[in-house]
Nucleic acid binder design. Structure first.
Lengths: 213, 213, 213, 213
DNA sequence: GATGAATGAGGCTTCATTCAT
DNA sequence: GATGAATGAAGCCTCATTCAT
């Protein structure tokens, strides 16, 4: 019967609606600061439904967390990287990473919050090393091509390369409040963003091009 | 008589005792997750004293926050940087920064927590751009010397230079739970720490040495 | 189904139950002296429900206050005053006022308490001059009739007339503890009550009958 | 030695200073609403002194209460009532009472507060029926003279006479917040005060002059 | 007598969760 | 599935009072 289908479609919509509101709430207030009541009010449904679908507050938090990494990776994989040189491909990836963090502060904040939470929930999650295999393999391939072509002269692991640019892209967004205050600037101003986007690529490329000492 | 001194010393000791315990509590659980009762139990005194000395939970959080930046900068200024080349001096600063973040996860977590708090408390604080002037001026002097000596060929502001190495040093610690989980590694293992400490310096030096395109 | 009705009836019963207990508590101990815990224990429900229905202690106090004036005025309006002379009608009103204050010490105490509170809560309330329009209009009509019939020879406003008898009826109850102590009597003894009830009417009638000097 | 004298003079000044501040605090916030800390801050001395001189908060409240009645009666006795007719003397007393309540809202509020407190503290106090004997005797003498002179035709006790005018004078001040709100007026406006001062005297004189029915 | 610091009981309020309909 | 009402543990904070110097 279509009854069940319709019902489950509704249920899915309800779940999605709750998840969206919960992402906003958790990323704004943190795990302990988030309020189930506030989430419920923000949705089209009621508190009871949250408990029905997600068990408890931690279950909801877990569900929110489970969604954000695959979402990032899926966007990443949509990039068209055909016919690019290693440098061009790497720049494209860094550009994407830069923009994604800049445009998804919610994602950045959720990751911070989960680290404050000592990563306990993420570890209980289906999100495993699998989600990052693609990007690591791609970085690996870029590095190999660059080394083969004698463009890259450094020996660096894909993971370290990934950390190098991600840390900068992440930090700019995650720490913009304190950095802006302490350094007396607006870290996310348009001019800073433009310059930083160029900078992170230049630094990494300069490193890869440079010779081992 | 030493009465006054003793009295005020006691108060100071009480304050310091509370602040130490509070730093641990806040950095472990966050602003909303911290429990005043738990802090009180950890001290040599009672809950009432927390309110007597700091007004309320937010006041205590603010007091904790007010201490961490000056503490970092004071350590930084203790470095002996006499008779060093620009590269050597920069490496010394980056080493210090790397070690400080590695050894003071509490500091890193407090900064994260304050960013989750949108920097609201830090802005109400005496901690202003002053605390960072010394390090920025030192970086500036290094850059100028390096350029004069034709060792550095890049034009970069002290602030951007500072962000480059700090972001990496910070992120390694702040995000180690999620990164270790997602990338299937132990970011803070001794071997990773050694390699990363070398890496961040190499990358930045390589950039500064390289020519503008 | 009667589900909705029953549900809302339950909520109403809970609210009413809380309000009754709260009136006793507030009138006995004052706004600051009242204890939410004691109120909760007196009800059929729990402390949480007080906050659920009334927001906070002040909200509960406001709700209690909002009920007492309309209750008085509604009782007042139930009086049958058909076919009475101006004097008879006025005496009926004064008798009612006298008895109402005597029998509702809670009301008297709430009004005292709100005056100690500088009337701040009452002013935030829906209770406005409307609630007293009926009684003032009735007094006005009595005065006009009495003057037309050449029975009353004094020119007095309905408000002043109202104050004259109300002040006495109120004060007898509001101040009975101190007055009884200081004057060495029992202000609320039956014989005093009987005599005072006669006295307040006699005084006012004597005034209205007397000629302007 | 003058040392002791000076000391006790200082002590007296300290006590008086505390009592003045406490009167303001208690009359503003009530017994339970008053704060010992706030009182201490308002004085020239410290909290310890309050406990030293008055034992505890209730002791201080009692001391404040003990002062207000004798103060009123002492002012009352200063009136020069020589060569006055009974009516003139009575008017003088009512005028005094009216003005005293109008000018000493603190007194009025303390009395209200003590009634909210069920007069418990006053009863434990030295303030007894003695303090009011003089005024009652004076009223008695007025009534007797008025009756002898065939000016007063009513048989009323001094106590009831006292209640009649005091209730009005008290109520005007004690209830001005709620009455002004509910009746839509400003009870303590200058024009109302002038008219009420005339009114209360006229009403009582009219009664005394009128014949028993 | 004077003072700042300390105490601890108890006050107000919140909030995740469950229940009845 | 949906909803308002209810629960109770636990959170933050206040305040009369006492102590040490």
């Amino acid at each position: 019967m279509s009854g069940d289908i319709t019902t489950s479609r509704d249920a899915d919509q309800t779940r999605q609606n709750i998840l969206e509101v919960a992402l906003k709430e958790f990323s704004e207030y943190g795990l302990t600061g988030a309020r189930v009541d506030r989430i419920a009010k923000g949705t089209r449904t009621t508190k009871g439904m949250i408990y029905y679908h997600f068990g408890d507050k931690d279950g909801l938090y877990k569900a929110v967390l489970e969604e954000i990494y695959p979402k990032l990776r899926k966007s990443e994989e949509k990039l068209d990287k055909s016919n690019l040189s290693p440098i061009e491909e790497l720049e494209k990836i860094i550009d994407f990473t830069f923009e994604y963090h800049k445009n998804n502060e919610n994602f950045v904040r959720m990751v911070m919050i989960e680290n404050i939470n000592n990563g306990e929930t993420l570890r209980k999650t289906d999100v495993d090393t699998g989600v990052s295999q693609n990007i690591l393999m791609e970085l690996s391939s870029i590095l190999i091509r660059g080394q083969k072509e004698k463009v890259f002269n450094r020996n660096i692991s894909p993971i370290d390369l990934h950390l190098l640019y991600t840390s900068f892209c992440f930090y700019r967004v995650s720490n913009h409040h304190t950095v802006s205050t302490v350094l007396g600037m607006n870290m996310l101003s348009s001019s800073n963003s433009i310059r930083h986007k160029r900078l992170v690529k230049d630094v990494i490329i300069a490193y890869l091009l440079s010779s081992e000492p």
